[in-house]
């Protein structure tokens, strides 16, 4: 057992007067895959956005790869560069081609030579099977292709952790599969992943642990098999009965 790469202790977060996250404790070890599920508004997206500090937390500690996230953190960009993130709305840069979307950050943030960055990007695009679209613009691609490009873009930074914020929620049922396939093969490659999703099939296939959240709290946290076989709390049972 290695040291946890992400460690969250007694974390609380408010939006104004409203407390979104209540006393969150979570440890994620390297190479583990965690699936976070729960009803909408339960704070799961906010939780993973806190991990690369797209949202600021008010109380408690978040330690990512040995760096504590707080207002004093100076090199927040350095930490973010090691944490890849995939969004529900893809958030590709519409003014750049697919290839440029993937090479921009490696070239300017990691100071990688342009040629090397392009090779890396084409390699990653090939893994998600859209290397033939490299010179198109995001607007010309389907939703599934855009989301796979977003995954490739995050991977081009060679991150240690990947965060997925409901990556398939904005997609057609047919396109969900192609994105999930890309994520499964990424998981099999040994990436540390935290995935917010409603895709329970994906959770059963790759997750080591499943976390169930409601009203800003972690209600249940268990090994995947255990979680689906005999959920402990009534809230979890209710949720699972509705979603499965």
């Amino acid at each position: 057992m290695s040291d946890p790469i992400i460690k969250i202790q007694n974390m609380n977060k408010w939006f104004g007067d409203f407390q979104v996250l209540k006393n969150i404790n979570l440890e994620v070890e390297t190479n583990k895959k965690i699936v976070v599920c729960g009803p909408s508004g339960s704070g799961k997206s906010t939780l993973i956005r806190c991990i690369n500090r797209l949202e600021e937390h008010q109380e408690g500690d978040i330690i990512v790869d040995g760096n504590e996230l707080s207002e004093k953190t100076k090199d927040i960009e350095k930490i973010r560069a090691e944490v890849g993130m995939v969004f529900q709305q893809f958030n590709l840069f519409p003014h750049l081609s697919i290839l440029d979307n993937c090479t921009l950050a490696p070239i300017w943030v990691k100071k990688m030579p342009k040629k090397e960055a392009q090779e890396l990007a084409l390699d990653q695009l090939k893994k998600v099977q859209i290397d033939d679209q490299a010179n198109k613009f995001p607007g010309q691609l389907s939703g599934g292709q855009q989301q796979r490009c977003a995954i490739a873009r995050a991977l081009c930074m060679q991150p240690k952790i990947m965060l997925f914020d409901e990556p398939t929620s904005a997609l057609d049922p047919e396109m969900i599969k192609e994105v999930l396939d890309a994520m499964v093969s990424l998981a099999k490659g040994g990436m540390t992943m935290i995935v917010v999703t409603h895709e329970m099939g994906f959770a059963k296939e790759v997750a080591d642990e499943v976390i169930f959240m409601d009203e800003g709290m972690i209600i249940e946290k268990a090994e995947t098999k255990e979680f689906f076989a005999n959920p402990k709390s009534d809230r979890t049972k209710l949720f699972l009965s509705q979603i499965l």
């Binding site: 797209l54 973010r80 993130m85 958030n91 921009l104 950050a105 995050a154 930074m157």
Partner: peptide, 22 residues
């Protein structure tokens, strides 16, 4: 959209890089 800022930040871009390129 705010997503553009989020995406740029999540790739490790600082204020100036984010504004100049994205």
């Amino acid at each position: 959209p705010r997503g553009q800022y989020d995406a740029a930040k999540s790739l490790g871009m600082g204020y100036w890089k984010m504004h100049i390129f994205i």
